[in-house]
């Protein structure tokens, strides 16, 4: 066999698995739209997105997913309120404050936190956190948006910390030197030079953490309470889009309007997640350009 032939063969061999992921993505998108779009024969896009009632099995059924969208957003927002300050502060500590020894031991622990299955978080939330929340806030049940935000916030910390830490460590040392040489102390340097310089990367970290929370299914299914009602406070049970699909797909008859509606929810999820990723990509690229 000639050398060029051999090389082409090897190229092809490695090209196949790489292109497979593109095929899978395309396949998923096609199926999503094929199975989801038929719902709009029954209801309009406006009614679907802004309808206040999700009664898919009633007669006649109602397919308004506004409560689910708000449930997802509420839980995501709550989780970010917890995870962003903690995650970014952790990243600052690891990259700027901790001694090399502490840094070496904390980083693997945080990565381990990311590796815990979400069902374990959910279980922990259900059995340990929810009863405490009920007790502290004097509620009948502790399964609500607050508990879900708390657990999801903890789950998002590793993502936010590790990506922010990369961004902070990537800030060129010369900026730090310049700041110290002007008589700035460590905290002035961190707050006024390092964090702004790492801003793009930290924003990316927050968006990816947000995507992680927003797409999380098992944990919210277990601890958010599961009521498909427009939430009025953090202490009410909520249901997210992901949890709805997971909970109802098993009982929806294939080809029914309920089935189509669940796929249409998946389209909404997919579009929002996709925009998170595109946004993160744009921001990190702009950041790279700015630092030259």
């Amino acid at each position: 066999m000639k050398r060029t032939q051999k090389e082409n063969l090897i190229k092809g061999f490695f090209c196949l698995p790489a292109s497979l992921s593109i095929f899978f993505l395309l396949g998923i998108v096609i199926v999503l739209f094929k199975e989801g779009l038929p719902i709009f024969k029954v209801t309009s896009l406006k009614e679907f997105l802004f309808g206040k009632f999700w009664y898919p099995t009633y007669e006649p059924p109602e397919f308004g997913i506004l409560p689910l969208i708000l449930g997802s957003f509420l839980v995501t927002f709550g989780a970010l309120v917890i995870s962003v300050p903690l995650g970014v502060a952790g990243a600052i500590y690891i990259s700027e404050v901790a001694s090399p020894k502490i840094k070496e031991s904390i980083k693997p622990v945080i990565e381990l936190l990311a590796g815990i299955p979400s069902v374990v978080y959910g279980f922990f939330g259900m059995v340990i956190v929810a009863p405490q929340v009920a007790k502290i806030f004097d509620l009948a049940v502790g399964l609500n948006a607050f508990t879900a935000s708390l657990i999801l916030g903890i789950m998002a910390i590793p993502t936010i910390t590790s990506i922010s830490e990369d961004a902070i460590s990537a800030v060129p040392k010369k900026f730090k030197e310049a700041s110290y040489a002007l008589g700035a102390n460590k905290w002035e340097t961190i707050l006024r030079v390092i964090l702004p310089a790492a801003g793009g990367g930290i924003t990316t970290a927050v968006i990816l953490g947000m995507a992680r929370v927003y797409g999380e299914t098992m944990t919210v299914l277990m601890v958010a309470g599961g009521a498909a009602v427009i939430p009025r406070s953090f202490f009410e049970p909520v249901r997210t889009m992901t949890a709805t699909i997971a909970a109802e797909m098993g009982e929806a008859v294939a080809g029914s309007t309920h089935f189509y509606a669940l796929f249409a929810i998946a389209i909404v999820l997919f579009v929002i997640t996709l925009s998170f990723n595109i946004l993160a990509d744009i921001l990190s690229q702009r950041f790279r350009k700015r630092l030259g």
Binding site: K174, F175, E177, A178, S179, G183, P196, A197, R290
Partner: peptide, 19 residues
């Protein structure tokens, strides 16, 4: 040291303006 560095400024080998 912060006061010292205010009194003794420094210009580095590579230009290092802040971003």
């Amino acid at each position: 040291e912060t006061f010292l560095r205010k009194r003794i400024g420094m210009v580095f080998q590579m230009p290092n303006p802040f971003p």
